[in-house]
């Protein structure tokens, strides 16, 4: 179908999430959405293959959580029957291991979540990876529209429910937005059957992180509304909170056409009509 002999290789980087209420290890929400998105590519690229990659510790909790991704397999041959775990000691910086691995066997597309649910959660990993690999990065992916040769057309999430269409040259790194299609359920059978292949990898300790103090998040103080005004009347008016007049433009005795023009001018100025 495609001129390339090799199918479309998609690497999905998955992490171990943490349930917001119970605190139990689980598949991370955004990573699962990323996997869902990667699996959806098969609809228009039947030759796409998904590779699951995780860098981290190997223990029982993590394994249960990671099997959650394997449980998303439906049918065989998608590449979802195996997850590669690059083993890292506790407190390691996972970027060098992942970068080394991806550079050695480069896929055409790397899909990650926007930020991890544990640890620093800075959302920096995809950016550093893209920088090291020298690939373009697009954030906030919601939907892939098409892939032709080495060009992928996708929709990016903007605030306020807006979308932007972007074309990016492959190979590329993309991060998935919370507005992307939710992940399918993880089924127990495939999760059990799937295998986790543990591989040794470069281990670089994250020294900076070790020097920081972590504590449960404190509630942020609410900002008080401070009214700086010399006159007591102004302060009272501000505190009383009643809508104040002034500042606005008032058009009386205009024809509906003039009114419409004035409104449209403001809308154009604000750039809200698209």
């Amino acid at each position: 179908m495609q001129p390339e002999s090799r199918g479309l290789e998609v690497a999905v980087l998955v992490s171990v999430g943490r349930h917001p209420v119970t605190g139990r290890a689980r598949r991370a929400d955004q990573d699962a959405r990323g996997l869902e998105l990667a699996l959806s590519l098969a609809a228009f690229r039947p030759d796409s293959r998904v590779r699951l990659l995780h860098a981290g510790q190997r223990d029982d909790d993590n394994e249960t959580a990671l099997r959650g991704y394997l449980g998303m397999a439906r049918g065989v041959g998608t590449g979802l029957e195996r997850l590669t775990l690059l083993e890292q000691p506790e407190g390691a910086d996972v970027v060098p291991a992942l970068a080394e691995r991806l550079a050695a066997t480069p896929p055409q597309l790397v899909v990650t979540g926007a930020r991890a649910e544990q640890g620093e959660g800075s959302g920096l990993l995809p950016y550093v990876l893209a920088e090291r690999l020298g690939w373009p990065l697009v954030n906030g992916l919601v939907e892939v529209e098409s892939i032709e040769d080495d060009r992928m057309t996708l929709l990016q999430a903007l605030p306020r429910g807006q979308r932007r269409r972007i074309q990016v040259r492959l190979p590329a790194v993309v991060t998935v937005d919370g507005a992307a299609a939710p992940a399918r359920q993880s089924a127990f059978g495939p999760a059990r059957r799937g295998s986790i292949k543990v591989e040794a990898a470069l281990a670089v300790p994250d020294e900076a992180f070790a020097g920081w103090t972590l504590s449960p998040a404190r509630k942020r103080p609410r900002r008080l509304k401070i009214v700086k005004s010399a006159s007591a009347r102004d302060r009272f008016k501000a505190a009383a909170g009643k809508a104040q007049g002034g500042g606005g433009q008032l058009l009386t005795d205009v024809t509906p056409e003039q009114a419409a023009e004035a409104i449209l001018r403001l809308l154009e100025e604000e750039g809200v009509m698209r």
Partner: peptide, 29 residues
């Protein structure tokens, strides 16, 4: 009504009948 509170809050207020202004807007568009 040019005296109502919404006018005081507004950055741009036009006084007139809503139906005809909306119709004019659609016309211009």
């Amino acid at each position: 009504d040019s005296g109502c509170d919404m006018i005081k809050r507004a950055d741009l207020a036009v006084i007139g009948d809503s139906s005809s202004i909306l119709a004019a807007l659609v016309d211009v568009l």
